[in-house]
Write a protein that binds this DNA or RNA. Structure first.
Lengths: 209, 209
DNA sequence: GTCTATACCAGGATAGAC
DNA sequence: GTCTATCCTGGTATAGAC
């Protein structure tokens, strides 16, 4: 791994830990094992390091989105993976738990969550990314999924978007609550399970109950 | 208003705007209309100003909680206002919208939301307060309310806590999304309305539909 | 591309006159 | 309790040798 990449990685870790202003160039350099002055051979400023991190996260998440078939402006739901279209209610719990755990533990996603919360009011780009990923895209994705499930008869008919928010909002709340507590994942998963059971109880068709 | 109070007020505004590290003592002093050195006659450090703000917010919110009858360790739900016990489903929408708007616009609450998001990872106290107010207490309160409504026959029987999370989580998500966009309150209220209608549709008893 | 040395500045905080 | 002046530290960034 070349030095530039190591700087980016360590900076990502430190910014996620202590925030942008709470991290000094010296700290980053030290973590990499060079002097702070040497760092300026790779980046022309601290801000440029931060920007490179934003790019890095963006790429990582774009890659993930494409893999998972999450819709975005270019990639609408109609093209999404066949997998999701065939999803049935009894699988919803497992898939949700896996996605939830992934969000909590993926090194990019979890650090991005922290940085976004600390820097959202100073940085429009990161603010926009966060809202797109954890709000708009997530809800749009769920809505599309539920629309398909309704058509397939796996879910009661209704306003797919409102149902999607009802389903996703508790996940978002749990992410907020447990984002920084990897030790309490089990507790989080238990609550998540209860919520999804409640969801299935309410929205499932009689023959799935 | 004495100088010490003015300092606290301006500091609250500036910390909410630019964060703790993003706000200098000079800025605060300037906003008050004095020199930065003079400020140290009222507070012995920048940190002490921040702490006084935390105390201020704490008092404000404790006062509100008592007024609204929100349960806490000392003040359990059994003592809560009779008003809530008599709440029926068709009033739920209006009450929720009022509380939601209050959270978005109250000068202490809205600034506290921002500060808590920026400083949560550096400051355990503010982190704890945020979780208590916007997560634990809010959910406990809703659960207690719904338990009463179930007893009174205004709501279908079920796990009050899971139902409370299903109800509250979308409100939390909307607060996250619109906390910093006072210009889009109408959009937020529309979505909130849809969600509560969905909730009533699902959890309301037949005779309320 | 790494180092040492250093410039430069901003921010927190103190001293002491008024 | 406010001011001016000043100190000190730490952080960003550059220069120039190796």
């Amino acid at each position: 791994m070349d030095t530039k990449e190591r700087i980016t990685k360590e900076a990502l870790r430190l910014f996620a830990e202590n925030g942008y202003k709470g991290t000094s160039v010296k700290q980053i350099a030290e973590a990499v094992g060079i002097k702070d002055a040497s760092l300026y051979k790779h980046f022309k400023s601290k801000q440029e390091i931060f920007d490179s991190i934003v790019t890095l996260i963006n790429e990582h998440i774009t890659k993930l989105s494409n893999t998972l078939g999450i819709p975005s402006s270019e990639n609408n739901y109609a093209e999404a993976s066949e997998f999701y279209k065939k999803l049935e209610l009894n699988e919803l719990k497992d898939v949700s738990k896996k996605v939830f755990l992934f969000y909590l533990t993926d090194p990019y996603i979890s650090k991005f969550w922290r940085i976004a919360h600390m820097e959202q009011y100073q940085n429009d780009q990161i603010h926009g990314m966060f809202r797109q990923i954890f709000m708009d895209d997530a809800i749009t994705f769920q809505a599309g999924l539920f629309r398909e499930m309704m058509k397939a008869g796996a879910l009661r008919e209704g306003d797919a978007r409102a149902v999607a928010i009802s389903f996703y909002a508790p996940i978002y709340l749990l992410l907020s609550k447990y984002a920084d507590q990897s030790d309490k994942q089990e507790e989080a998963l238990n609550i998540l399970e209860c919520q999804i059971e409640e969801f299935v109880r309410v929205y499932g068709k009689a023959d799935y109950e």
